[in-house]
């Protein structure tokens, strides 16, 4: 793990599901502290790509490096990378049999061997950051969707990762809860967290992204700073997508 190397470096990444090619020669570099938003129509391979970064999906061709560590068949390198890469899911995926606090302390205690008292102190700090310290003793099923997603962000932060991956974090939320989750994400971005977000929240992308990436059909079609991306998209497919997302 070399913190001076690029946070994420993907070269010529291929992924197949049977005969279907989900990713076609993806190249992507994310610097430390950079915020990248990935958008694109459903089925374009956005989620598959970020799930390859922490190896929830295995890739079939190409190379992925996280802080210089190559992701290969070596289980050790996968463990190493998962400790440094946190992930927030569309469906929150909290552990329903554990309290909010236990959700947050499980991985630090098991993976980082943090003593319980310290893990709980860290967890409370992050629960305060996502503004729900008063729910620490509750179970996920007793919280609203927005609260659950904020707990999921706190849970990922408790591992004190270098990189956070967001896989459509607001897509399963009711409209009135999207703002509270985005607020937390904006705060994180302003604090310099390296973030890769798959999202359709174009307002968020415009506000915090250093770069917006448009994917379609398993390929990166366009890659530009948000101003350029939204105001002067180069590709016809990007223009069509933007008109569908922003057009109403």
């Amino acid at each position: 793990m070399d913190l001076t190397a690029p946070a994420i470096e993907i070269r010529n990444l291929d992924k197949y599901y049977g005969a279907f090619q989900a990713l076609r020669g993806i190249d992507l570099r994310v610097a430390r502290g950079e915020r990248v938003v990935i958008c694109g129509p459903s089925g374009s391979g956005k989620s598959t790509m970020i799930r390859c970064i922490n190896q929830l999906e295995e890739h079939d061709g190409g190379e992925i490096r996280v802080f210089g560590t190559l992701l290969d068949d070596n289980l050790g390198s996968i463990d190493e990378i998962r400790r440094e890469v946190g992930m927030v899911f569309q469906q929150f995926n909290l552990f329903p049999h554990m309290t909010v606090l236990e959700n947050c302390t499980l991985a630090p205690m098991l993976v980082r061997r943090t003593p319980r008292t310290e893990a709980e102190a860290v967890a409370m700090r992050y629960l305060e950051k996502v503004r729900i310290p008063d729910q620490a003793g509750k179970y996920p099923g007793q919280l609203s969707g927005g609260q659950q997603q904020r707990v999921a962000i706190a849970r990922a932060l408790c591992m004190q990762p270098e990189i956070l991956l967001f896989d459509e974090p607001t897509s399963a939320l009711d409209p009135e809860m999207i703002a509270e989750v985005l607020d937390v994400m904006v705060t994180l971005a302003q604090e310099g967290m390296t973030m890769v977000c798959v999202t359709h929240e174009m307002g968020f992308a415009r506000k915090v992204a250093d770069r917006v990436i448009f994917m379609d059909n398993g390929e990166i079609i366009e890659e530009a700073p948000p101003g350029e991306f939204f105001d002067a998209p180069k590709s016809e497919r990007t223009r069509l997508f933007l008109s569908q997302v922003l057009g109403h």
Binding site: D79, R82, F89, N93, F95, A107, L110, V111, A152, M159
Partner: peptide, 22 residues
């Protein structure tokens, strides 16, 4: 749910920990 298992793996839990804790 597959999601809970994935979340546990993404947090860096070992296969045995994913099994026994989640």
């Amino acid at each position: 749910g597959r999601g809970q298992t994935e979340a546990a793996r993404a947090l860096g839990l070992s296969p045995w920990q994913v099994f026994s804790r989640v």
